[in-house]
């Protein structure tokens, strides 16, 4: 049982996070929600899978994050001929003191922030090498295990088009990602702002707003945030309801979300509460992160795909179906129409 952080600690953390958000919003226009989810993912110590068309700013976002946090960043462009050693590192034969020995040369994974661009173009062998790094925080080469630097984040991107010659990520690999974020294009006003403030070939200027130690503290603070029993119960019922036969919404689901999804929901809800300067996670936080947490963990059946039903539609129905409170009202009581919510 962790000691919940004080309200002053939470307020200070929220201020720092707000600076980070402001900095990132200066890098990527019109993507406030996406940026908030990316920061939530960082605070929840999760890896993120960004899916979107080319040119929407995915790489710029990672670069901006790197600059705002002052963390070294490595970018790997995944291709079909990419080998596992290309990302984990390779032993190189060297002569030291007259002896020839293999010395491990770390690959691009040995950086706190790794951008795995177009991850679905790499072979499954390479993808699985990335899997160990994401899950265990270490890589093993020639029987020798090398720990990765902490914090370690993988922000992978994939293109929803041009799928020929790609290797879709297996379910086990997808489950390692905390969020799968859909990057959508902005509206006309956003485009106008981009045209006015950006130039081709010139990266936007980003100032560092947080140090690495600050990020580690924020992650620890988010971890200690209080999760009420009723919210944990809500998360459990949501994840349980995602399985076939457990709810009406999951009628066309072949496989529901894993317990890792429940843990991801809890961690993300706490991180979101910290961003919003609240001492505890709430139903609203869970609902806000439900779609990015669950959308890549639900495997729909053939019928759903034929009907064009997406995971997001299932999640929307699930949120509408599963009540916040497990205890229903007695029949002698009726609920009034809900007014607009207030409070922060």
């Amino acid at each position: 049982m962790h000691t919940p952080p004080s309200e002053s600690q939470i307020a200070a953390a929220a201020t720092k996070i707000q600076h980070l958000l402001d900095a990132l919003n200066e890098v990527l226009y019109g993507q406030r929600e996406l940026i908030e989810l990316v920061v939530i993912g960082l605070l929840a110590r999760g890896h993120l899978l960004l899916e979107g068309l080319p040119g929407l700013g995915k790489t710029e976002l990672v670069k901006g994050l790197s600059g705002a946090l002052g963390l070294p960043t490595k970018r790997v462009q995944f291709t079909p001929d990419l080998l596992p050693g290309d990302i984990t590192g390779n032993p190189v034969l060297q002569e030291i003191d007259g002896k020839r020995v293999f010395v491990f040369q770390p690959g691009p994974l040995f950086a706190p922030l790794v951008l795995a661009d177009e991850i679905n173009r790499a072979s499954p062998k390479t993808q699985s090498a990335l899997l160990e790094a994401m899950q265990e925080g270490q890589v093993t080469v020639l029987g020798e295990t090398h720990p990765l630097p902490q914090p370690f984040f993988v922000l992978a991107t994939q293109n929803p088009i041009e799928l020929e010659g790609t290797y879709p990520l297996p379910e086990a690999q997808l489950d390692r990602f905390l969020f799968k974020l859909d990057v959508r294009r902005g509206d006309a006003a956003t485009l106008q702002k981009i045209v006015l403030n950006r130039e081709i070939g010139r990266a936007p200027e980003v100032h560092q707003v947080l140090r690495k130690e600050d990020l580690v503290d924020l992650i620890e603070l988010a971890r200690r945030l209080f999760l009420p029993d009723v919210v944990a119960d809500y998360i459990a019922r949501l994840v349980d309801g995602s399985h076939p036969g457990q709810s009406k919404a999951s009628a066309q689901v072949r496989f529901g979300a894993s317990p890792r999804a429940a843990l991801a929901l809890a961690a993300a809800a706490k991180a979101r509460a910290l961003i919003h300067d609240r001492p505890n996670a709430s139903f609203e936080d869970v609902r806000a992160v439900a779609a990015p947490v669950l959308r890549h963990r639900l495997l729909l059946d053939y019928q759903a795909r034929m009907e064009g039903r997406t995971s997001d539609a299932v999640i929307t129905d699930l949120l509408a179906e599963v009540p916040e409170s497990a205890d229903g009202l007695p029949r002698t009581l009726a609920e009034n129409a809900k007014p607009e919510t207030h409070g922060k």
Binding site: V231, N280, E324, P330, R331, L333, K338
Partner: peptide, 30 residues
């Protein structure tokens, strides 16, 4: 079928947009 204390607090905080503050306070978290 009676409304429990936790259930009543949940309904209140959900209704009034308190973001589960009552449940957290009841648990001593804030």
């Amino acid at each position: 079928r009676f409304v429990s204390l936790a259930g009543a607090m949940t309904r209140l905080e959900s209704r009034m947009g308190l973001h589960n503050r009552l449940s957290a306070a009841a648990a001593g978290a804030c």
